[in-house]
Simulated assay, not measured.
Amino acid sequence: MTLDETDRAFLRALSDDATLSAGALGRRFGMSQPAAWRRVKRLTESGVLAGKRIEIDREALGFGVTVFLGVKLATKGRVSLEDFERAVTAIPEVQLVHHVLGLYDYRLRIVARDLSDFERILRRRIMTLPGVGEVEANVMLSEERLAGPL
Rank of each mutant, 00 (worst) to 15 (best):
E45I: 06
Y104S: 05
V139E: 02
R78W: 08
V71E: 10
G133K: 02
L73M: 13
S116E: 05
V79L: 12
Q33E: 14
L69G: 06
G26W: 07
R109C: 14
L61H: 07
A137L: 03
L103F: 02
L103R: 11
E55G: 10
E82Q: 06
S21G: 09
K72Y: 10
L101C: 06
A112Q: 03
R58P: 14
R125K: 14
M140Y: 03
W37M: 12
S15V: 10
D105E: 11
V132R: 02
A74V: 09
K76T: 03
A50W: 13
R109M: 13
V100I: 09
T44Q: 11
I110W: 03
A13M: 15
V97G: 01
D114L: 04
L20I: 09
G131Q: 09
R27G: 01
S116R: 10
D16M: 01
R107H: 14
V67W: 07
R109Y: 02
R124F: 00
R86G: 00
F118I: 06
G64E: 12
E59A: 14
G51P: 13
H99K: 10
F63K: 04
V139S: 09
L146N: 12
T75N: 05
V100T: 07
A112G: 05
R123T: 06
G62S: 01
I91Q: 11
V94G: 10
R38Q: 15
F63D: 09
L25G: 06
R28W: 02
K52G: 10
D105C: 03
M31F: 15
I56L: 15
A137V: 00
D17R: 09
D114S: 08
G70M: 01
L108F: 03
G51K: 10
D57S: 07
